[in-house]
Amino acid sequence: MYLVTIITPIYNGEKYLMRYSEQVNAIGYKNLQIIVVNDGSKDKTSEIVKKIC
Protein backbone atom coordinates (compact mmCIF):
# COMPACT_ATOMS: atom_id res chain seq x y z
CA MET A 1 0.00 0.00 0.00
CA TYR A 2 1.42 3.38 -1.01
CA LEU A 3 1.83 6.30 1.39
CA VAL A 4 -0.53 9.11 0.39
CA THR A 5 0.21 12.61 1.68
CA ILE A 6 -2.37 15.39 1.86
CA ILE A 7 -0.93 18.87 2.43
CA THR A 8 -3.46 21.41 3.66
CA PRO A 9 -2.66 25.09 4.15
CA ILE A 10 -5.07 26.72 6.58
CA TYR A 11 -5.69 30.21 7.91
CA ASN A 12 -8.32 30.91 10.57
CA GLY A 13 -10.09 27.65 9.86
CA GLU A 14 -11.24 26.65 13.33
CA LYS A 15 -14.87 26.33 12.27
CA TYR A 16 -13.96 23.98 9.41
CA LEU A 17 -11.30 21.74 10.96
CA MET A 18 -13.52 19.18 12.66
CA ARG A 19 -15.52 18.59 9.48
CA TYR A 20 -12.29 18.40 7.48
CA SER A 21 -10.96 15.79 9.90
CA GLU A 22 -14.16 13.75 9.64
CA GLN A 23 -14.02 13.85 5.84
CA VAL A 24 -10.38 12.75 5.73
CA ASN A 25 -11.11 9.89 8.14
CA ALA A 26 -14.08 8.84 6.01
CA ILE A 27 -11.68 8.10 3.16
CA GLY A 28 -10.66 5.00 5.07
CA TYR A 29 -7.17 4.78 3.58
CA LYS A 30 -4.81 3.33 6.17
CA ASN A 31 -1.45 4.63 4.93
CA LEU A 32 -2.30 8.32 4.98
CA GLN A 33 -0.18 11.26 6.10
CA ILE A 34 -1.80 14.65 6.68
CA ILE A 35 0.36 17.79 6.82
CA VAL A 36 -1.44 20.90 8.04
CA VAL A 37 0.35 24.19 7.42
CA ASN A 38 -0.99 26.90 9.71
CA ASP A 39 -0.39 30.24 8.03
CA GLY A 40 -0.44 32.46 11.13
CA SER A 41 -4.04 31.92 12.18
CA LYS A 42 -5.44 34.30 14.79
CA ASP A 43 -8.09 31.86 16.03
CA LYS A 44 -7.85 28.46 17.76
CA THR A 45 -6.70 26.60 14.65
CA SER A 46 -3.44 25.38 16.23
CA GLU A 47 -5.20 24.09 19.35
CA ILE A 48 -7.78 22.20 17.30
CA VAL A 49 -5.14 20.63 15.05
CA LYS A 50 -3.25 19.42 18.14
CA LYS A 51 -6.45 17.83 19.52
CA ILE A 52 -7.16 16.12 16.21
CA CYS A 53 -3.65 14.63 16.12
Score class of each variant (00 low, 15 high):
D43M: 06
Q23R: 07
N31W: 04
P9M: 10
I48G: 02
G40M: 08
G40L: 12
K15N: 15
I35P: 01
S21H: 07
V24Y: 04
Y11M: 06
S21Y: 05
I35L: 14
I48W: 04
N12W: 00
I35S: 06
Y2R: 05
K51L: 11
Y11F: 13
L17I: 04
Y20I: 09
D39T: 06
Y11E: 14
Y20V: 09
T45W: 13
K42L: 10
L3Q: 10
I52Y: 02
E22R: 12
Y20L: 15
I35M: 08
N25T: 01
E14Y: 06
V4M: 11
I35G: 03
Q33M: 13
Q23V: 10
K44F: 02
L17F: 03
T5H: 07
I52G: 01
A26I: 05
M18N: 12
E47V: 03
S21A: 15
I6P: 05
T45V: 04
I10T: 08
V37K: 15
Y29N: 11
N12C: 09
K51W: 02
Q33K: 15
M18E: 12
Y11G: 09
N12T: 06
G40Y: 02
K30C: 07
I52R: 01
L32W: 00
K51V: 02
E22Y: 10
K51G: 01
V37L: 15
S21N: 07
E14G: 00
I35H: 05
L32M: 05
G40Q: 05
Q23F: 02
Q23Y: 00
I34E: 10
K30Q: 13
